[in-house]
Each structure stands twice: as structure tokens, then as C-alpha cells.
Design a protein around this nucleic acid. Structure first.
Length: 852
RNA sequence: GCCGAAGUGGCGGAAUGGCAGACGCGGCGGUCUCAAAAACCGUUGGGGUAACACCCGUGUGGGUUCGAAUCCCACCUUCGGCACCA
């Protein structure tokens, strides 16, 4: 067996329609693409007034130019969901657009000397064609493109609304910096600590940059989870990302000065155990503390080394701890003791206040650091004597480790070595000390978040320019709304060098100041593309409205999104940014909703060779498969591959079975279409032969199973249920009545249509229907017809299966138990043991529990 | 490292407290054919048996339960995210 036998090689991509009885997908696809265009099948307004609005949305793609199987999977899942809602009678808004700003267009400009706008437009055109071919039911009249001035005008407008509300501010932040290219690098462009283009080691550079104050919304983002119909793991990830922790801010006086150093701690109860203080190496106070001291050089080297590390290396709890003593002291406010100040790699400027009080006896990181540098360790909490009731055993294990001098004690207990508070339970002391500090102006109870404010400045060309001017006399001035958009200039050379491409444009950098009409300088940074994708769902319903970003009427009609579909990789960033922006716009009374996405579904990613498919690497195109098997087969294959919520290794091994399945339907319906009776519904209940009963039971069971799976988006099992139904039709379809045959054909084509839209339409028309199957009603089932007269039950002894039996479906518990007790194999299994207990599960089993 | 998932036949997977392996691929056997392909029918977890019986089996080790792939604890492996890829 060779590899090519399993994985069709590209040269084998000639269509599999070499026989007359095969599904001629090329002809059918062309015909129905034309029909859909002529009839405006997917226009949102064609369904006006049909039913309650339903907003079906998939995360829009970056237009990389080549559709890969990851796209096909995501958008097929969304398309089936949207088509199902139409069949359930909803008026569906199902739009598509392009997250068109971003790094790849700029890379292409540098490499191939093609303008990002042109490159992007070409890619969009190609992908739109591929999407149409895949039969995705988008209303293309609502297409949006975040890189078009009509769109980014409103991205800039939103920036200004947040700016005016005090939610946008500037501060210094470090960027990855390539000293050779003299340019800022994205994390992705840093490979093994070096610039991916010239391999120069990357350093950090401080720049003044814009932020959105997302941390002001941290609690709202947490509280909002309660009302969302989202997967639990995504909510957990967001909670951990936001990382709310309660504790206290404590002010330590810098010895010999009147300056305070605030620290954040979740453990103010350990304040008497502080034996040193640690600042983040980048802490602004550090320069002042080492000025003129022998440590200054050492500190500079240390910082430079850390600057070369990635965020992940920096935050690893496994990384060896390293620090430098600064020969400066801080005064502990609770006992006025002076403790030495250190800097260390394990303290981060971004978290808390960038400074920690170190309590080696009760914090593991401090403990390890103190051990390493020989710093004193002072116990202030005594573990409870009796830990036997600790069900987890963790407290106990922790204490064993402490006895062996391996770990800090992190649990609660009784205060010791804590002055007047000695003897108090530590949990109580936590509250008491916060009040004590507050009364003396030395601190306060506070809440801290792991979430950081959203840095949105990018030193790039291909993004929305930040609409701010800097005037020598008026200072920072927002661009007036009626002057938007601030358009991207075209007089740019893409060299990959220089601080920000926009700064090199003679036409862009200056503009008249709106206040004094003097010459002002423009902000030459563009916005993070996450800003573009944080509001696009508001734009779709109003995609062609040039006067305003959205209308209240349209937002009220369509939002929030009823079903949002996208990859798990967006769990924290995109999904938090979009929620934040929606909340901010709500508070500015610009939208009435607080949450953008009512229901979320995360499809798993497709990977190949252990890595996910992406726009940069590892893209596997679906074209050859569509040429060979047709779009319907490709759609069903990608859904049948794995449960939509799970990740899947790419493979085409089972595609022959999918192709066979569609052809079995095609042949069956075509060969017997003459049996179709349009009035089958009035006759079908008279059909009562064994074949009729068997076929009808399978049909109604299948409708039930597929309907349940459609609600959960478990499309792989929907497809297997339909395969089973087709197998039944091949067994009994010839023997059953025309009415039962007609019912089966009607139900099958309706259920198939969302998965295989081309074949669905073609067969539906063949049965004589005028209107598209796209608008046909989703079938219902009769529960009475789904149950068999006889069912199989299992007889167990002590949970082991000993025999099975066919019994009437409505058998009583007593009769079932009696059957079990009389069963020969059960008796043999009993031996000389007696029955202690009997478990009867109606319709399933009897379990005899036996013993001496 | 931290956070979140996933691990079931030769392969993709089904079953979310009650018959493990639905459905599909692949394999094997058959019908048709000069032959093949296609199509259709049957069969297919491992051990064991002439055939049954029976035993084993859902990453590893423990636990809860009459009963565990499913719930709990620990561990191993793989994948996604970690704030400038989007």
C-alpha cells in the first residue's frame, strides 16, 4: 500500500464524474451559482418579514489570498448554522468581510514592491471568488473591508469617542527594536531573539504610545460573563486573563527620603515577615537609586539582558531567579524596620505597582530567591496543628515540605512574630491590617488585575492612522470628526526600515491645527488591527450607510449577534477587546447593547504535521479537492472529519466515503423520482407494510437526531445519521410504498440542503419545487414513529453482561426483572451466591448485585 | 512556565453514569465482468476456540459507584493562547 493510495496526489485531481450515473457537480454548481445570483437568494432583504431576525456571524478572515482548509471548516460550520436558521423560519443576516489591515500586506510591499492596498485588493477578489464557489450564503451587498477609508473613517471616529471620554491616553511603552533596520518589530518578526530579516539581536525601545483604558472595565467584563451563552472553558480563560485579585497597596518609605514606594500584595497578613523589597528592573525609581553607585553598570547590563527575553521567558516560574542588591533601604510601615531593596527578574513592571514586598517564609518565589542570596527568612504565620481535616491534603503536603526546608508555607494559620497582632488568626488579621494601614495613610485595601491596558499604537503603515495632531502652541489636538478619515498617504517607500513609515511621507506628517490654524504634526502611528475587528459586527447591518457608523434601528434589530463562530485561539484577545469596546460604546450611549455576542461557538483548529494551518505557513488549499469531488463533497468532508468543536488533523482519507454517500443519494433519488407523490402527506399514514414501518421509523429517527445535532452544531454526527438513513433506503426503499418513499426523499433533501447546497437545490427542483430549498421549512418528526416495538436489553451480574434479550418496548420493570432472574446464563453466573440488590433501568438493563 | 483543551480499533471518530467501537476509511470475502474499475451485498477491537464458552480492552496509576471512556485525585503526552500574527 503506497501513500498516494490514501492521499490523492494533486495530479489526480481530474473530476470524479467519469460515469453517467455520477453526480455531475460541475454542471450543477455552475447552474445554481447563476440561479442564486439571479434570484438574489442570499439577500437579507429578500427574507424581510419572514420571521424573527437572526444574526449569524463568523469571525472574518485576514485576506491572505488563499483559502485554506481551516477557513473552509470555520465558514462551512457557520454556513450550515445560518442555513438551518433560515429553514427554521428566521430572517437571517449572514454577512462577510475582510480584516484587511495588517502585517502581511506590508511584508509583501517590502518584498515584492507592490502597494499594500493593491496586494490586499487582489487577495480579497480571489478569496471572494473562492467563498462564492464554496456556496457560503453571504449577503455580499453588506461586504466590509476594514482597510477602506469608508470603514477606517469610523474606526478613527470610535477612537475619538473613547478619547473624548477619557478612555484613550498616552504613556511610554517598550517595543521590540531592531537596531540594524531601525524599526519596530512584531513578536512574530522576532525569531530566537533576533530580527527575522537581518538576524540582528533585538532590543527594546521606549516610545510614547496610545492606550485604551480597558482595565477600567475589568469588573464589568467579569460580571458580563453571567449573561452569555458561551463555552465554559472560554469564560474560564477570560477570567484568568483578567486575573482579578484582592489585596492591599502598602506604602514603604524610601529610607533617607520623603518618597514612598507602593507595593501591591495579596497577602498583607504577612507584612511583619518582610525581609527585603524587590523592584522590577525597569522600575523608574531604579535609576535614581543606583546613580553614581558601583551597581549602576551591573543594573544596565542586567536590563539589557532581560530586554532580549520574550514575555514568556520572562514570566516563566521555572527560570532561575536572579537579582541585584541596590544598597538602598525601604521602611516597613508596620514595624519601621529598614529592609534592603533589590531588583530581580521575577518582578514585572506591568503587574501591580512593579514592586513587591518579599516574604520568603510565605511566598514560594521569595523563598527561592532568599535561599539563593542568603536573605533572612522570618515566619509570621504558624500552620494549624491539625490539618487532618484538609480534604485536599495540600496543606499537609506543604507543611511536610516546609519541615524539610523546601518550601514556603502559603496557607492560613495563627500570627506569630507580629507585634501586638501575634496570636490572631491570619484571615482576620488580613482585614485588620488593611484598616490599620488606611487609618495611618500607609496603604489601603485594593484590587489588582493581571489584565493590562490595551496598547494600540503600531509603528506601521497598513493600519488606521491615529487621528491626533500635535500643535506647538495648542498641544495634543484631536482631528475634528468632519475631517475624517485621516487617509493613508500613497507617497511611501516600503523599505522595512525607519521608525514609522508614515513619518517618511512629506504629505502626511503635517496638517493645519484645527484650533489655531498653525502647523501641527500628525501622529504617525496606526492602530492595532484588533481595533478594526472590535466593532465590525456593528457595521455589517449598515455596511453601505456613509453618513454614520451604524443606525440605532439596525443595531436594535440585529444585535447582539445570535450565533458567533470562530476559533478558540481568539478566546482572550479579540473576544475581550470586542466586549470592551461594545461596553464603552454602550456607556457613551452610542449603542444599546452591552455585550456583542450572545452565543459563541468555538470550532477546533485544523492542523497538519502537528502545527495549525495559518496564513503564513502550512496552508493547505481546498481547490484540488473541489475540482475532483465538487464543493458539496468538500463541505461534508470537512464537517465529517471531526466534531466541529474539536481540533482535527488534516486528512483526506475518508473523502471517498463522503463522495460515495452523495452519489448514493443522487442515484437513489434520480432513479426513482417518478415515484414521488406531491400529496404524500395525506397518504403516508396508510402505509403499513414492514418495509414502510422500517423506513418511516428510520426517517423520523433521523430527523430527530439531525435536529438535535443541528442545535448543538455536532455536524459530524448529523452526517452519520443521514448516512444510516440512506443505508436503510437502500435496504427497504424499493419495498416500501410510494408515499413512504416520498416522505423519505422530502425529508432527506431538506436535511441535506444546508450541508450540500448545490445537490440539495438540484434534487429539490427535481421533485418539482419552484422555490429554492434554501427557503424550505426544516422538517419535524413524530415521536411515536421513532420507537421500535421491540428493544434489546442487557442482563448483568455485578455489572458484567451475561446475556441480552429482545423484549417489548413497553415491558414493566417487574416483568423485566423476572426475565432476568429466569435467564439461564444469569443463573449460571450466579453460582451459589444470593441476590442482594436488583437495579432495573427500563429500556436498557437489569443488573443483579450478588454476594455471599 | 502559566492559562485552557484533548488522548477510545490499522485510521478519522460514536457513546457524557447503563450493551464500548455508531458512521466513514482501510482490509478481507462475495455478486456482476473475459478481466478490471465502478456499483451492490457480507465481514472486520485483541486474545482464545473446530465452533461456542470465556478472558482482556477507552494514555498511565489510584479512587467513588450496583455499574466509569464518561465523575474525582495524581501523573504522562499532544495541541491552542500568553498581550505587536490575526
Amino acid at each position: 500500500m503506497t501513500d498516494t493510495a490514501i492521499h490523492p496526489a494533486p495530479e489526480r485531481s481530474e473530476p470524479r464524474t467519469d460515469r453517467d450515473d455520477r453526480y455531475p457537480f460541475a454542471r450543477v454548481e455552475a447552474a445554481w451559482r447563476q440561479q442564486w445570483a439571479e434570484r438574489r437568494t442570499y439577500a437579507t432583504d429578500r427574507a424581510e418579514g419572514r420571521g424573527e431576525p437572526f444574526y449569524a456571524l463568523e469571525m472574518f478572515p485576514y485576506p491572505s489570498g488563499d483559502l485554506h482548509w481551516g477557513h473552509v471548516r470555520n465558514y462551512t460550520i457557520g454556513d450550515v448554522a445560518a442555513r438551518y436558521q433560515v429553514m427554521k423560519g428566521r430572517q437571517v443576516l449572514h454577512p462577510m468581510g475582510w480584516d484587511a489591515f495588517g502585517l502581511p500586506a506590508e511584508n509583501a510591499a517590502i518584498q515584492n514592491n507592490v502597494h499594500p492596498a493593491e496586494w490586499t485588493q487582489r487577495n480579497i477578489a480571489r478569496m471572494r471568488d473562492q467563498f462564492s464557489r464554496m456556496a457560503f450564503s453571504y449577503d455580499w451587498s453588506k461586504e466590509i473591508n476594514t482597510a477602506s477609508p469608508e470603514y477606517y473613517r469610523w474606526t478613527q471616529w470610535i477612537f475619538l469617542q473613547l478619547y473624548n471620554a477619557g478612555l484613550a491616553y498616552k504613556k511610554n511603552a517598550a517595543v521590540n527594536w531592531c537596531p540594524s533596520c531601525e524599526t519596530a518589530l512584531a513578536n512574530e518578526q522576532v525569531v530566537a531573539g533576533a530580527c527575522e530579516r537581518c538576524e540582528t539581536p533585538v532590543t527594546k525601545k521606549m516610545l510614547s504610545q496610545w492606550y485604551f483604558a480597558i482595565t477600567k472595565y475589568a469588573d464589568r467584563l467579569l460580571d458580563g460573563h453571567a449573561a452569555l451563552d458561551w463555552p465554559e472553558d472560554i469564560i474560564t480563560m477570560q477570567k484568568n486573563w483578567i486575573g482579578r485579585s484582592t489585596g492591599a497597596e502598602v506604602r514603604f518609605r524610601l529610607d533617607g527620603s520623603d518618597e514612598d514606594i507602593p507595593v501591591f500584595t495579596t497577602r498583607p497578613d504577612t507584612l511583619f515577615g518582610v525581609t527585603y523589597m524587590v523592584l522590577a528592573p525597569e522600575h523608574p525609581l531604579v535609576d535614581q537609586l543606583v546613580k553614581g553607585k558601583p551597581q549602576a553598570k551591573q543594573v544596565a547590563e542586567f536590563r539589557e539582558r532581560l530586554a532580549r527575553q520574550t514575555e514568556i521567558e520572562r514570566t516563566s516560574t521555572e527560570a532561575p531567579k536572579e537579582g541585584i542588591e541596590l544598597d538602598a533601604y525601604a521602611i516597613n510601615p508596620v514595624n519601621n524596620q529598614a529592609v534592603p531593596i533589590w531588583i530581580a527578574n521575577y518582578v514585572l513592571l506591568e503587574y501591580g505597582t512593579g514592586a513587591v514586598m518579599a516574604v520568603p517564609a510565605h511566598d514560594q518565589r521569595d523563598y527561592e530567591f532568599a535561599q539563593q542570596y542568603g536573605l533572612p527568612i522570618l515566619d509570621v504565620i504558624q500552620p494549624p496543628q491539625d490539618t487532618s481535616e484538609d480534604p485536599t491534603g495540600q496543606g499537609r503536603r506543604n507543611i511536610e515540605a516546609i519541615d524539610a526546608m523546601e518550601a514556603a508555607y502559603i496557607g492560613p494559620g495563627t500570627m506569630v512574630n507580629s507585634g501586638e497582632f501575634t496570636g490572631m488568626p491570619s484571615e482576620e488579621f488580613k482585614r485588620v491590617i488593611a484598616e490599620w494601614l488606611e487609618e495611618r495613610g500607609k496603604g489601603r485595601a485594593t484590587v489588582n488585575y493581571r489584565l493590562r491596558d490595551w496598547l494600540l499604537s503600531r509603528q506601521r503603515y497598513w493600519g488606521a492612522p491615529i487621528p491626533i495632531l500635535y500643535c506647538p502652541s495648542c498641544g495634543e489636538v484631536p482631528v475634528p470628526e468632519d475631517q475624517l478619515p485621516v487617509e493613508l498617504p500613497t507617497d511611501i517607500e516600503f523599505t522595512g526600515k525607519g521608525e514609522s513609515p508614515l513619518a517618511s511621507s512629506p504629505t502626511f506628517t503635517t496638517a493645519p491645527c484645527p484650533k489655531c490654524n498653525g502647523t501641527a504634526k500628525r501622529d504617525t502611528d496606526t492602530m492595532d488591527t484588533f481595533v478594526d475587528s472590535s466593532w465590525y459586527f456593528l457595521r455589517y447591518p449598515n455596511a453601505n450607510d456613509s453618513g454614520e457608523p451604524w443606525t440605532r434601528r439596525a443595531v436594535n434589530k440585529w444585535l447582539p449577534v445570535d450565533q458567533y463562530i470562530g476559533g478558540r485561539e481568539h478566546a482572550t484577545m479579540h473576544l475581550i477587546y470586542a466586549r470592551f469596546l461594545t461596553m464603552a460604546l454602550h456607556d457613551l450611549e452610542l449603542v444599546s447593547i452591552e455585550e456583542p455576542f450572545q452565543k459563541l461557538f468555538n470550532q477546533g483548529i485544523i492542523y497538519k504535521g502537528g502545527k495549525k494551518l495559518s496564513k503564513r505557513h502550512n496552508a493547505i488549499p481546498p481547490d484540488a479537492t473541489c475540482d475532483r469531488y465538487g464543493v458539496d463533497t468538500a463541505r461534508i468532508h470537512v464537517l465529517f472529519l471531526a466534531p466541529p468543536a474539536e481540533s482535527a488533523e488534516w486528512s483526506e482519507e475518508t473523502i471517498e466515503g463522503t463522495w460515495r454517500f452523495l452519489n448514493r443519494i443522487w442515484r437513489h433519488v434520480n432513479a426513482t423520482a417518478h415515484r414521488y407523490a406531491p400529496d404524500w402527506e395525506s397518504k403516508v399514514n396508510d402505509a403499513a407494510s414492514d418495509a414502510d414501518k422500517s423506513v418511516r421509523r428510520k426517517v423520523h429517527q433521523t430527523v430527530q437526531r439531525v435536529t438535535e445535532d443541528m442545535e448543538r452544531l455536532h455536524y459530524n454526527t448529523s452526517i452519520s445519521a443521514m448516512m444510516e438513513m440512506v443505508n436503510e433506503l437502500y435496504q427497504n426503499g424499493e419495498k416500501c410504498s410510494d408515499a413512504a418513499w416520498s416522505e423519505a426523499a422530502d425529508r432527506l433533501i431538506r436535511m441535506l440542503a444546508p450541508f450540500a447546497p448545490y445537490m440539495g437545490e438540484e434534487l429539490w427542483a427535481k421533485l418539482g419545487h419552484e422555490e429554492e430549498v434554501y427557503f424550505a421549512a426544516w422538517p419535524s418528526f413524530d415521536p411515536a414513529l421513532t420507537v421500535a416495538d421491540e428493544i434489546e436489553v442487557v442482563f448483568q451480574v455485578n455489572g458484567k453482561v451475561r446475556d441480552r434479550a429482545q423484549v417489548p418496548a413497553d415491558i414493566s420493570r417487574e416483568a423485566l426483572e423476572a426475565l432476568a432472574r429466569e435467564n439461564e446464563k444469569v443463573k449460571a453466573g450466579l453460582g451459589d451466591l444470593s441476590v442482594k440488590k436488583v437495579i432495573v433501568v427500563p429500556g436498557k438493563l437489569v443488573n443483579l448485585v450478588v454476594g455471599k
